[in-house]
């Protein structure tokens, strides 16, 4: 499984490279990312798996209280994902690291919407119900949503969940980056207010990138040399640093290219100003005119109705 996935991405890399070379002429794509968004830095070496962030998130967003909130043991036996009842979850991973007594050392990883700089979901949304805000939050407007779930198809982090058991007014459910709080001066997302080990740091994304880089350089050997989210999928508002490779804590290996770039390039080069449909209409019109003119003398009145099919 692991091996074939790695293989998969190798091919993906080659494929992406070919694609960027070929339509280079049509490449007028520009990032629509906000210039100075907020972000959140997750330091996996600090997280102890207390799940207070899950609790705070549920409270702030009026979601059901997390399952076995006080328990830090059995809940980790299954791998959980954010769903329609929880915007964030913490999982425990044993990645092979052991301490001096040969006891496996766990790594805890919180997962939630990454709030991409150029989000695939925003580009995919048929009605523009999803938007990337200046604060960095990817926001969802339920009043526009039709429930096509293309955002869920598009998201490379498999984050948006759906209220599948609501027959008439289901919603897409995902982390809001606590927009209502962070858009006010000094506001923090629920999870970042409560973290007892300062594993979560909220701030401007640029500041956090510097902070993360500083931690990497000042603690040689402690971290792997990679800030996850700096470049993944064109960059995300949420950033991770870790002592273990990110694949081992279920953060996907992704191309640096923003997800929407290829499809938006193809769509816009084919359909800007509707040039291709208009050209095709004209061409077919000319052909039709030509063939009918050529056939007119032979045509008898009884065949005239033939076009009506």
């Amino acid at each position: 499984m692991q091996l074939s996935r790695r293989h998969f991405f190798k091919i993906m890399g080659v494929a992406t490279a070919t694609a960027t070379v070929a339509p280079a002429a049509a490449d007028t794509w520009q990032s629509k990312s906000p210039p100075d968004p907020f972000g959140c830095l997750v330091d996996l070496t600090r997280c102890v798996g207390c799940r207070k962030c899950e609790e705070a998130c549920a409270e702030v967003n009026h979601l059901p209280t997390p399952e076995r909130a006080a328990c830090q043991c059995t809940i980790f036996e299954k791998k959980r994902r954010p769903d329609d009842k929880a915007y964030t979850v913490v999982n425990r991973y044993f990645t092979g690291t052991v301490d001096e007594n040969d006891t496996p050392v766990p790594t805890f990883a919180k997962v939630q919407c990454m709030h991409c700089q150029d989000p695939a979901c925003v580009s995919a949304c048929i009605v523009g119900a999803l938007t990337k805000d200046e604060t960095g939050a990817v926001r969802y407007n339920v009043d526009k949503c039709i429930g096509c779930r293309y955002c869920m198809v598009a998201c490379p982090f498999e984050i948006p969940a759906y209220e599948y058991f609501d027959p008439v007014t289901p919603r897409v459910m995902k982390c809001t980056f606590c927009y209502d709080r962070i858009s006010k001066d000094g506001g923090l997302p629920g999870c970042a207010t409560i973290c007892p080990t300062e594993a979560l740091t909220f701030g401007k994304r640029n500041t956090l990138l510097n902070m993360a880089q500083k931690r990497l350089t000042q603690n040689p050997g402690k971290y792997i040399d990679h800030i996850y989210g700096e470049k993944e999928a064109g960059g995300t508002s949420w950033l991770y640093i870790s002592a273990v490779p990110f694949e081992t804590v279920n953060l996907p290996v992704l191309p640096d290219k923003p997800m929407p770039k290829l499809s938006e390039n193809i769509q816009h080069s084919l359909f800007s100003y509707l040039w291709s449909p208009i050209a095709l209409f004209s061409l077919l019109g000319a052909i039709m005119f030509g063939t009918h003119k050529a056939q007119k003398p032979k045509e008898t009145p009884s065949q005239k109705g033939g076009r009506n099919a």
Partner: peptide, 19 residues
Amino acid sequence: IGRSWAIWKPMFNWNTNSV
């Protein structure tokens, strides 16, 4: 689609980036 009654909404809410 989850909100069948909203199927008309794309007519008035355009996202031309969306395939």
